Simulated scan of single mutants.
Amino acid sequence: MIHALPPRSSGPAWSFAIGGARVSGGAPETGEWTHLLGLYDAETGKALLYVNGHEVGTAAEATPAEAAGAFQIGRARGAAGYRDRWHGDVGDVQVHDRVVVPDEVAELAYRKPKLLGHWSLENATDGVSPEQSGGAPLRLGTGASIYRGSDDSCIPDLDPDCTYVPPPLVGEGHLRLDGESGYAAADGPVVDTGDSFTLGVVVRLADSDPAHPMTVLSQAGEHTDAFKVRYEPSTHTWQLVMPVKDEAGAPEKVVSRIEGADGGEGQGHRLAVVYDDATDTIKLYLDGYTDAQATATLPAGRPSNGGLQIGRAQVGDGWGEYLHGDVDEVQAYAGALRDDDILGLGWDTDPCLC
């Protein structure tokens, strides 16, 4: 029997009961889908519970009796009849006559992320750069422009009058920001910060030693940024930063940092931030690598109604931390991409979410 236990001192939890054993763990969330798997291993005599692909609670010794009754969904049998009737939705019910191994559990629980937007930043018309599939565009502010590379009509090594033009970061163009007022922004929020999401971007600094912190991505909550990804020159690190609470002037917390200055040269870095609502963890990736994760401070009740910002963040009562550098291939997903998928972000095609 799998069901949700009523609230206790530590809050509500999922529960799997079989053969005199009960395993509990994981916190139910109203309105959120959860993948549950209760497992009994006859070889070990243990009962286990998985919530969203992760083992929770403590495996318990169980001695199940033969069950002759009909399989039930949404209710349990008690001494006085049926009870514990389920209020909510149920889907994709599967029953296995064998042990399901951990890798299978993770695959069963996996929900394929949905692409919300992909901005290649290769062109702009009247200060607006389109989304690849015709979705919400990004609007360019003063100090932001689209850089286009050479058309390869001349080769410097063969023609002394030909001036070398550096290629764009990816594809045929990228966004160039002046570090003073330049930015690009969507008219509204791109990702739901109360649910799982992924954001990816390619960025290259213009200076080897910037004078101040510079934000690459941010999205505003009601009173301050829900999160921001920035470069901190004093420590030469890329940082994922979130406020302690959604209040004006709330202190900020650096929940993840990775070293990786590019000195203003090369093909830039591929950054990604991934929030997994199922595990309440958030990660920052640099070129496909992550060395830190933190308990998320983005509960489902926190609003995030501001537009996605490229190249700036909220500072006090206005905007600041303007980025001086180049940005390309902004991608947004509903859902948490897996580590292998992160490696595919930052190219001019979407990663294979296999």
Rank of each mutant, 00 (worst) to 15 (best):
M1D: 11
A4V: 15
A4Q: 13
P12F: 09
P12A: 14
W14D: 06
A17N: 10
I18D: 03
A27K: 12
P28T: 14
T30L: 12
T30V: 15
T34K: 03
H35P: 00
L36H: 09
G38W: 08
L39H: 03
Y40G: 07
Y40P: 05
E43M: 06
T44G: 01
T44N: 00
K46R: 12
V51F: 01
V51C: 01
N52H: 06
N52L: 08
H54E: 14
A60E: 12
E61F: 05
P64G: 07
D84H: 09
W86Y: 12
G91T: 15
R98G: 04
P102N: 02
P102Y: 05
E104D: 04
A106S: 10
E107H: 03
A109M: 05
K114N: 09
L116W: 06
H118K: 04
G127C: 09
E131P: 01
Q132T: 13
S133P: 00
A136G: 03
A136K: 11
L138P: 04
L140Y: 07
T142Q: 10
G149L: 12
D152K: 12
P156N: 07
L158S: 08
D159S: 09
E172Q: 12
L175V: 06
L175Y: 04
D178T: 10
D187N: 12
P189E: 05
D192V: 15
D192A: 13
T193H: 08
F197A: 06
L199I: 14
G200A: 08
V201M: 03
L205R: 13
D207S: 13
A211T: 15
H212P: 00
P213C: 09
M214N: 02
L217Q: 05
L217N: 02
S218I: 08
E222L: 11
D225Y: 06
V229Y: 01
R230S: 12
L240K: 07
P243W: 02
P243T: 11
G249T: 13
V255D: 00
S256N: 08
I258P: 00
G260M: 07
D262F: 02
G264F: 05
G268C: 07
G268F: 06
V274E: 02
D276E: 13
D277E: 12
A278P: 00
D280Y: 01
D280R: 05
K283R: 15
A292N: 09
T297N: 12
A300M: 08
G301S: 11
G307H: 00
I310C: 04
R312P: 00
G318Y: 01
E321A: 10
Y322V: 09
D326E: 13
V327I: 14
Q331V: 15
A336L: 13
D339A: 14
D340H: 12
D341M: 05
G346E: 11
D350C: 06
